[in-house]
Simulated scan of single mutants.
Amino acid sequence: MCTSIAFSAPYPLFGRNLDLETPFGQQVVATPRSFAFHFHRRPAMPHHLAMIGMATVAGGVPLYAEAMNEAGLYMAGLNFPGNAYYTPADQAAPDAVAPYELIPLVLGSCRTLKEAREILTGIDLLGIPFAPGYPLAPLHWHIADGTGALVMEVTAEGSRLYEDPVGVLTNNPPFPVQLANLTGYQTLSAAPPENRFAPGVPLPPYGQGMGAIGLPGDCSPMSRFVRAAFLKCNSIHSAGDDAVNQFFRILDAVAMVRGSVMTPEGKPDMTLYSCCADPARGVYYFKTYDNSRIHAVNLLRAPLEANTLCCWPLPGGHGFEALN
C-alpha cells in the first residue's frame, strides 16, 4: 500500500508514502557515479548517473523503493499484487531485467522521461529474486521528471506504459481503471457548492469545504488515488520550501494512521515514511512515522565520483522541539 505523487510544473517535486506493516531495513542511500551496478542479463554499469532515495542495502547492493537521479528523473516501485507478472527465467528475453534492477538501470542511464520511455517500452521483467529470503515483490512503477509522468505496469497481458495526467499512483486496480474512476468525481470542487439540487429552495452551505462532499476518506488504493489527485490538482503553492511543505501536506492527507488499517495477518499497515525529492536543489527530504520532523539530504553534496555507497540511517525519537 503506497501513494506516489509527481508535480511536474511549475516547480517539479516527486515523492511518496511507503505504507507497510513492518520496516525493511530502510535508510537513505546515495549511489555515486562509479558504484558498479551488475545485472543478470545486461552488461554491468560501472559508471552512471548518481541517485538518491530510500533503500535497503543487501550484500552491498542498494535495493531502492524509490529514487531520484542527479538529472532530476524520479522512479518509484509500488505494490501491485495479483496483477504484476514476471517472466520465468527459462522464458525471459536475453535482455530481461529483474524487478530490483529496474530503478538502477533507468536512473543510472536516463536523464529524461523521454529516455526512460525508450528503455522501458516493451521491457521484459525477469522473475528472479535478489537472493534467498528476498521474495519477488509484485510492483508497478511511477516515473517522472519536469515534463510529465508515466506509469509502467507489466501484467500477464504484457508491458504497458501509460501517460499519467494527474501525476498520482497508488496500487490496485490497474492504472487505466484508477484514471477512469475519476470521472465519477468530476463535480467535486474546492469552491463553495452551487445549489443544483433544487435551485428554488434556499440551501445555504453550513461550512467550508462542502464543494468536495463525496471525496473518499478511506485508505483503500482507489480512494487514496482520488483524494491525492483532488488535493494535488487543487494545490496552491509557490516554489522552494513552500512547495516542499505543501507536498508533505498532501502526503499527510493520504497517510495511514497506525491501527486504522489491519492486514489479514492482524498487523497494522502504516506509513513508515514519506519523502519528497526536489530536483532543482538535488535534495531528498523525508520524515518517518515516529519522527515527523522533515529531514534533508543533498545529493549534490555527496562524493559523486566515489565508488562506495553513502548511507544515512533514519533518525529515531519523535523529533519534538521544546520552546521553553
Results as ranks from 00 to 15, higher is better:
residue 105 L to F: 13
residue 106 V to G: 08
residue 74 Y to S: 07
residue 104 P to S: 06
residue 86 Y to A: 07
residue 94 P to S: 14
residue 72 G to V: 15
residue 114 K to Y: 04
residue 118 E to T: 13
residue 116 A to N: 08
residue 92 A to W: 10
residue 120 L to H: 00
residue 121 T to F: 03
residue 92 A to G: 07
residue 105 L to Y: 15
residue 86 Y to S: 08
residue 76 A to I: 02
residue 75 M to Y: 05
residue 113 L to V: 07
residue 115 E to P: 10
residue 76 A to E: 09
residue 93 A to G: 04
residue 71 A to R: 15
residue 90 D to M: 11
residue 96 A to S: 14
residue 121 T to Y: 04
residue 89 A to N: 07
residue 82 G to D: 06
residue 98 A to W: 04
residue 82 G to V: 13
residue 94 P to Q: 13
residue 75 M to I: 12
residue 109 S to C: 08
residue 90 D to T: 15
residue 94 P to F: 10
residue 95 D to Q: 14
residue 73 L to W: 05
residue 95 D to Y: 05
residue 83 N to H: 15
residue 114 K to N: 14
residue 105 L to N: 09
residue 101 E to L: 02
residue 105 L to Q: 14
residue 69 N to D: 10
residue 87 T to H: 02
residue 96 A to Y: 06
residue 100 Y to R: 05
residue 91 Q to C: 03
residue 93 A to C: 01
residue 105 L to A: 14
residue 111 R to V: 10
residue 103 I to V: 11
residue 103 I to H: 05
residue 79 N to M: 07
residue 114 K to H: 13
residue 73 L to S: 13
residue 89 A to F: 07
residue 102 L to Y: 02
residue 71 A to W: 03
residue 94 P to D: 15
residue 124 D to I: 12
residue 98 A to P: 12
residue 74 Y to V: 08
residue 86 Y to E: 10
residue 92 A to M: 12
residue 121 T to D: 10
residue 94 P to I: 11
residue 87 T to M: 05
residue 93 A to Y: 03
residue 82 G to M: 10
residue 106 V to N: 06
residue 112 T to D: 12
residue 117 R to D: 11
residue 121 T to H: 10
residue 71 A to K: 14
residue 121 T to M: 08
residue 97 V to N: 03
residue 90 D to Q: 15
residue 104 P to I: 05
residue 76 A to Q: 07
residue 117 R to W: 00
residue 95 D to F: 01
residue 101 E to T: 00
residue 105 L to M: 14
residue 84 A to N: 07
residue 114 K to I: 02
residue 96 A to G: 11
residue 110 C to V: 12
residue 114 K to T: 12
residue 84 A to Y: 00
residue 97 V to M: 05
residue 97 V to D: 04
residue 118 E to Y: 00
residue 102 L to T: 00
residue 99 P to C: 01
residue 98 A to I: 08
residue 99 P to E: 01
residue 98 A to Y: 11
residue 81 P to E: 02
residue 73 L to C: 11
